[in-house]
Design a protein around this nucleic acid. Structure first.
Length: 478
RNA sequence: GGCCUCAUCUUCUAACGGUUAGGAAAUCGGGUUCUCAUCCCGGCAAUCGGGGUUCGAUUCCCCGUGAGGUCACCA
């Protein structure tokens, strides 16, 4: 058995979104599970569509997700170069081999002429087949004309690792361009050559290539190459649930998720379970889990809608599962500006009490800012005295002041340890004959000025005695 | 139009022909000493239609229907 080698071969034409990255992830999972290699090759054969910087962007996205490659661009390897634009001589040589074998020929038509054929077919409501116009005496190929494959139309039945048995008739096979007139190969040609030369055992790609597979099979035959295992993944659908995810549908750059404070392992978990499950009721998977449990025969055949809400939930689940130290290391760039002057130890305490309500790190400032800066008097006043709180609106301003005053007096004597706070405030409930919904709300609002915040005893404890009392004092003057 | 693919709750999905069709997200109730969240309990909610095959079809076959892909000197 040959060692498993899978690859991701994007073209540098823009940002990488979840749909594209999932293809990479599945290929990566196949390789990692089998203890094989994962390659990153750049298919930069279309100079017109190329977007500068996107090669780097793709690599950065993969690195962030932890989809590491063993060979490929930036790191090299024994099958390089891994940038197709640097392999033109190889494609030319293979093209010539096909010419010599009578399986390729120079296309004598201009683009306009071919287009006229196409329009003709379209008007007749027929599929366009170039081979119906195949020239009888094509000129010698000098590299200035496109090189076309001389196909051998026939029926095919083949196995796809995800889709199962597939078949088509000869009408699916046509003469397609191998090398363009600018000397660059087409995807249809060079991916086959490269996968062969790089000894890839699996070709993982999304559904839009399904209709091209018979053509590939025909070419493999002409080249006398045994095709690798074909792995066709269903689409990731956009928000409308009908069309595949695309930038136009608002598909986000993968790195946007990094910027918003999603955990890469959560996104990996999300993408993997978009079209795959392990057959159990497990929903949350670590990346190691996925590597261990992934299997192609449990990959879905139909497209799955990208559900951002589920991603959000999954991210929260991963955040909650993270040890505090790890979590802290990830939040580095997300703290509110006012947290700058505070010790790591204090920030960690804050983090530990907001951990369970954090869905993504961009929420960190709104969740924690009152630990680092004084809440505005407007915020405190509004929360304390407007009518929105159904517990507090039963009380007069005077009653509220009285309760707060009593709480202040009690807390003055506390050492602000969690247990002491708990004990004193619980006793105070009895003494004042009031309910937690009232007393605790008042204190919580006075010290946080926030519509919601962590549990009261935690908040007071982390905030500390001085700050807490100061803020209560201030609330008493409003 | 030709060819190809797909089809279970709103969404992601489970169910080697035999289940009251399960789980999770969302949502709606209730509980956990305040809010928000977590956690726990509960509710709502699906096999696209029609024919077969079978003692029995979500599952197998056929025909519809719907959705998507493809038919580039793009990948």
């Amino acid at each position: 058995m040959k060692p498993v080698r899978t690859r991701f071969a994007p073209s540098p034409t823009g940002l990488l979104h979840v749909g594209g990255v999932r293809t990479a992830l599945f290929a990566w999972l196949i390789a990692r599970q089998a203890g094989g290699s994962f390659l990153l090759r750049l298919e930069d054969t279309d100079k017109n569509r190329e977007v500068s910087g996107s090669g780097d962007h793709i690599q950065e996205s993969l690195r962030w997700l932890g989809i590491n490659w063993d060979e490929g661009i930036s790191i090299g390897g024994k099958y390089g170069p891994y940038m197709q634009s640097e392999r033109l001589a190889i494609y030319k040589e293979w093209g010539q081999k096909l010419v010599d074998a009578g399986r390729a020929y120079a296309d004598p038509y201009t683009a306009e002429e071919v287009d006229a054929f196409r329009q003709e077919a379209k008007a007749a409501k027929q599929p366009f087949l170039y081979r119906n116009h195949r020239p009888e005496n094509p000129p010698a190929w000098d590299g200035s004309q496109p090189l076309r494959f001389r196909s051998d139309p026939k029926s095919y039945t083949w196995q796809d690792a995800v889709m199962g048995e597939l078949s088509t008739g000869p009408e699916a096979i046509d003469d397609f361009i191998l090398i363009k007139s600018d000397g660059y190969p087409t995807y249809n040609f060079c991916h086959i050559i490269d996968d062969f030369l790089m000894e890839c055992t699996h070709v993982t790609r999304s559904q839009e290539f399904l209709a091209s597979v018979p053509k590939f099979l025909n070419l493999y035959e002409a080249l006398d190459i045994t095709p690798p295992t074909l792995v066709t993944l269903p689409f990731v659908m956009g928000p409308d649930g009908k069309k595949k995810l695309s930038k136009r549908d608002g598909a986000k750059d993968v790195l946007d998720y990094a910027r918003e404070g999603y955990l890469p392992e959560a996104l990996v978990n999300f993408m993997a379970t978009l079209g795959w499950n392990d057959g159990t009721e497990q929903e949350v998977f670590s990346t190691d889990d996925l590597v261990a449990k992934f299997s192609l025969d449990r990959v879905q055949k139909s497209g799955a809608k990208f559900d951002e809400q589920r991603l959000l939930w999954l991210n929260g689940a991963h955040i909650r599962a993270l040890p505090l130290q790890d979590l802290y290391a990830r939040t580095d760039t997300f703290w509110p500006e006012s947290a700058g002057g505070y010790e790591e130890d204090f920030r960690k305490q804050v983090l530990s009490i907001v951990q369970e309500r954090l869905k993504y790190f961009a929420e960190l400032p709104s969740l924690t800012s009152f630990f680092f800066e004084e809440p505005t008097t407007e915020a405190v006043q509004t929360l304390l005295y407007d009518e929105s709180n159904k517990q507090l609106r039963k009380l007069s301003p005077e009653q509220k002041q009285t309760l707060l005053q009593a709480a202040y007096k009690e807390l003055e004597q506390s050492d602000f340890s969690f247990t002491d706070l708990e004990q004193r405030l619980n006793n105070l409930l009895v003494t004042l004959e009031t309910k937690p919904g009232i007393l605790f709300s008042l204190i919580r609002i006075a010290v946080s000025g926030a519509p919601f915040s962590p549990a009261l005893f935690d908040t007071l404890h982390v905030l500390g005695k001085d700050t807490s009392l100061e803020r209560m004092q201030r609330a008493l003057t409003l």
